[in-house]
Design a protein around this nucleic acid. Structure first.
Length: 896
RNA sequence: GGGGUUAUAGCUCAGUUGGUUAGAGUGUCUCGUUGACAUCGAGGAGGUCACAGAUUCGAAUUCUGUUAACCCCACCA
């Protein structure tokens, strides 16, 4: 058997339907084992680098990841093909709180706690957990086709990252940008740790405003205060009013008696108080409210803690000690009511802080924590974006980013957890000094005492994530990778972590990477369910991407995720859309199958001359060239959905619906005379298909590889993923061919329409007569009459001589430059036909009226570009021609 | 309280510097299965582009306001 015959036989065995399961795994293994994802520094090429937003180590692939990965992979695959030195660094995040919570839950099931087993044992368990479940998501990422350089995989707690974290911490400390302070911070009683401001979600809740009265010492007068949190009254060390508040002028400076506790507390004036709110008098609890804390500082009030780390009342709450804070509130209100302290209760809507992880109500508590000073770090980060060095796509996120950084407050980075980067600070038990060090300390650098102990706390997970773009390239070492690939090209992520992650990477990148961490930040939205709800575990409405991949294939999922939405906007997930994407994959599959089945005997070296090309050939090559340009431009603009749509439309609506249909007669003609035409058709088919597959590869990597390997291509290239990105086919752009083909296509559609109208039997051809208003079209139709026969069941087709009489019993259709007649054997229904033509006439007249008005407008003529005016003139002429033709036809019908 | 997004066909959405007969998918109606594909083909119906102004020769597209939905930020007890 010849090569070609073998190929043909193989083609006959190609399944009729697209079956992704049969090849996706195979190709991923092929790419990975051939090291096609791996890149070494190659200074002869322009770099294009990306770092993956590291998923949580014990996480699972969800739709958000699938979208994020798909977008990144498209950019990476495109740039790799386009000749860049491309690297995409994968890895995962140790995810402090999240992972620790999982292991703690496991311990709880086993009937123990981390405190019982101790820090060392606990950490062993977390590492075990990490080993066991940690890389699951990395394997899941492979299933959607991510072309990451797995040889460069990193983990935020690996040796290199730990070194980077310590270097940054110590360096910031030395610059005075990291400090320790005793302050009121957001405390989560369930996670039992401090958290940063952005980890607090404010939820509007329906609460109450309790009005309580505190007696003025030694007098029979009371001051009425309003509070949303009566249980904190045990910590009250003052009551504040506004200095200008006439109601309280004479009371300022007096002492009040705190009910139940009977503590003497001062009544003082402070500008902070809002006269309009409540009673204008506010109880001050410096240990449990951020504003009160500040007032307390100003007025030197005592801080009395009444709520502990786990949300239970302390000894200071007297008989309520040990009670949960909310239980205490209930009981206390009752007691206050009985005592007559409670004056009234009103409903009150207010925003309450909740832990973004566990959703418990945040308790502001005074504690000693580590902070990063933000001002000097934020300034350059704002500037980098304002100046355009870093660009957000879409641009609107720029403002959100800037606004946040401009109002930023110091970042609390210490967490009372065990899983994470331990803070490199040591306390001396003898001299009491704190030392921060790049290496572990065994003695106090100040007094050389051996009695030192390391800070128990770990750093916020985002502290190490902030270093990700440069720590993954080897920083703090001066690696060739760092030099070549930093700054990275594009960061792809969801808008939900702009503050947590993007802003902090920019700050750290500028401070330590000595440059911006990336040039573009490509922001995408959330994938929601079909009703527009967020996918979540609690709602049980999450759709598992792995399930979609198993059922429909990764390419289908990828295509679904990037079409039908625009950058930065949320999208809804619909199974119908998945099916539609699958159908598209199947369409490509079958178009390829058609070509491959006809490849037998095809001379691969065949090269058509200009004369060999038919109109359809020239047309599809021109359309291909336009698509190539369109797709490339859109990818460059991050309009990946538009690029995919352009490919969809070209492949389905032009290549399959028209071109392939028009090649059938040529391919099935096995005669010697038809040989050249057949070979030309095969040449064009394979040229367009092979190029289109390459354009489509970043979007649907598996399918395109599977087909590409079978289609004639440059044999020296072993995978489509490293084939050249198609470019430079502009010479195929052919306006004339497109115009001529459009005229024929329009005519075909009109004939089909007319046939449907008269209910022509599908198997029966219709006689068609064409009258040319534009004589230039005559030779075009003459040469390509068969197109009408094949696609519109038109036969015979008569090209009426100029000025010939029009058929009487005929349906009429009109396209630009051509009148179309379908002579009918029997009598046509004059009434129906007239009505149809009148409807069309009305349409045409509407257009004429619109255009006449437009062209009659002096302003339009003088101010609009000449090109536009000319275009409108031609349109008008076309419509007028149509109008005349319809009118004369209606007149003819009237005579019958 | 501040800021943002969205409003286009029954449904989900495109429509990128203002000039289109306003599009797609899906749904719906009619017709069609011998050689790529019924995961398909052909044809049809279906839209005052939320509302009101403004700018312009010209607005789905730019600006202002209104309405509605959603989101983010925010230490009034």
């Amino acid at each position: 058997m010849s090569d070609n015959e073998q190929q043909a036989q193989a083609a006959d065995n190609i399944p009729k339907v697209y079956d992704p399961q049969s090849f996706e795994k195979k190709w991923y293994e092929y790419w990975e084992s051939n090291k096609l994802f791996h890149a070494e520094v190659d200074k002869s090429k322009k770099p294009y680098s990306m770092v993956i937003p590291p998923p949580n180590v014990t996480g699972q692939l969800h739709m958000g990841h699938a979208l994020d990965e798909t977008l990144q992979d498209i950019l990476i695959r495109y740039h790799r093909m386009a000749g860049y030195n491309t690297v995409w660094i994968p890895g995962c995040d140790h995810a402090g709180i999240a992972t620790q919570a999982k292991v703690e839950a496991k311990l709880r099931d086993e009937g123990t706690t981390r405190y019982e087993i101790g820090r060392e044992k606990f950490l062993e368990q977390v590492w075990d957990w990490k080993e066991k479940y940690g890389n699951r998501i990395m394997y899941q990422l492979r299933s959607i086709g991510s072309s990451c350089d797995w040889d460069r995989e990193r983990f935020t707690m690996d040796e290199g990252c730990s070194k980077a974290v310590r270097e940054v911490f110590v360096s910031l400390y030395e610059q005075g940008l990291i400090y320790q302070g005793t302050r009121i911070t957001n405390w989560c009683p369930d996670c039992n740790t401090a958290i940063s401001d952005i980890e607090v979600d404010h939820v509007t809740e329906q609460g109450h405003l309790w009005h309580l009265r505190y007696q003025v010492e030694g007098e029979d007068r009371y001051v009425e205060i309003a509070t949303t949190r009566p249980e904190t009254m045990f910590g009250d060390t003052g009551v504040a009013v506004h200095p200008d508040d006439e109601r309280y002028k004479d009371l300022v400076g007096k002492t009040l008696i705190l009910p139940i506790v009977n503590r003497r507390i001062p009544l003082f004036a402070d500008e902070y108080v809002d006269k309009e709110f409540g009673t204008g008098a506010v109880k001050v609890t410096p240990a449990h409210d951020p504003n009160d804390f500040e007032m307390g500082q100003r007025h030197h009030l005592e801080e009395i803690k009444v709520i502990g780390n786990t949300g239970k009342m302390l000894e200071t709450a007297g008989k309520y000690a040990g009670m949960d804070r909310f239980e205490c509130r209930k009981a206390l209100v009752k007691e206050l009511e009985e005592l007559g302290v409670l004056v009234s209760v009103e409903d009150h809507e207010h925003a309450v802080g909740h832990c973004s992880r566990c959703h418990s109500t945040i308790e502001p508590l005074v504690s000693k924590q580590w902070f990063v000073k933000m001002d000097s770090l934020a300034k350059p980060a704002i500037e980098a974006v304002k100046s355009g060095r870093i660009q957000f796509v879409p641009e609107r996120f720029t403002k959100i980013y800037e606004n946040w950084l401009e109002n930023i407050r110091d970042w609390c980075i210490s967490r009372q957890l065990w899983w994470g980067h331990r803070i490199p600070a040591w306390y001396c038990d003898d001299c009491g000094k704190t030392s921060v060090s790049r290496t572990d300390l065994t003695e106090c650098p100040h007094c050389h005492s051996k009695h030192i102990h390391q800070d128990e706390d770990v750093l916020d997970t985002w502290f190490s994530s902030a270093l990700w773009p440069f720590e993954t390239l080897g920083w703090p070492e001066k690696t060739p990778e760092l030099e070549h690939f930093y700054p990275t090209a594009t960061l792809v992520t969801g808008y939900d972590i702009i503050f947590f992650w993007v802003a902090r990477m920019v700050m750290m990148g500028l401070a330590f990477g000595k440059d911006i961490p990336f040039h573009h930040v490509f922001i995408h939205g959330l994938v929601r369910d079909s009703q527009g709800r967020k996918m979540s575990k609690s709602l049980g409405n999450g759709i598992d991407p792995v399930e979609v991949i198993d059922k429909y294939g990764a390419d289908t999922l990828r295509f679904t995720l990037i079409t039908g939405n625009t950058p930065g906007n949320d999208m809804r997930f619909y199974w119908e859309r998945v099916e539609s994407s699958r159908n598209f994959a199947n369409k490509i599959w079958n178009a390829s199958r058609y070509m491959l089945m006809n490849l037998a005997g095809f001379d691969k070296s065949f090269q058509p001359t200009d004369d060999d090309y038919t109109l359809a050939d020239r047309w599809i090559l021109s359309r291909y060239a336009q698509t190539e340009r369109n797709v490339t431009d859109n990818i460059e603009k991050f309009e990946l959905g538009e690029a995919a749509r352009a490919l969809y439309e070209f492949i389905w609506n032009e290549f399959c619906d028209w071109y392939i249909e028009l090649t059938k007669a040529r391919l099935y003609d096995k005669t010697e005379e038809g040989r050249r035409s057949r070979e030309t058709a095969l040449y064009v088919l394979s040229f367009v298909l092979e190029h289109t597959l390459r354009l489509l590869h970043p979007f649907m990597p598996f399918l395109t590889e599977e087909i590409w390997q079978k289609v004639p291509h440059d044999e020296s290239v072993k995978s489509i993923m490293i084939a050249d990105w198609p470019a430079g086919q502009e010479h195929f752009i052919n306006e004339a061919a497109e115009q001529q083909m459009t005229a024929i296509m329009e005519t075909i559609k009109t004939v089909r329409n007319l046939r449907a109208e008269v209910g022509a039997a599908p198997g029966k051809k219709s006689e068609v007569e064409l009258n040319f208003l534009d004589e230039a079209l005559r030779p075009v139709f003459a040469a390509n009459e068969s197109y009408l026969t094949v696609l519109a069941a038109a036969a015979p087709v008569t090209l009426l001589p100029q000025g010939s009489a029009k058929p009487e019993n005929a349906m009429t259709g009109l396209v630009d430059g051509v009148e179309i007649y379908l002579p009918l054997k029997g009598l046509i229904d004059v009434e129906k036909e007239t009505a149809r033509l009148n409807k069309e006439l009305a349409n045409v007249e509407k257009e004429i009226a619109r255009l006449t008005k437009k062209l009659g407008n002096q302003g339009f003529i003088t101010k609009a570009p000449a090109q536009v005016v000319e275009g409108e003139r031609q349109k008008l002429a076309g419509y007028q021609e149509k109008k005349q033709s319809i009118e004369s036809r209606i007149a003819d019908l009237a005579k019958l």
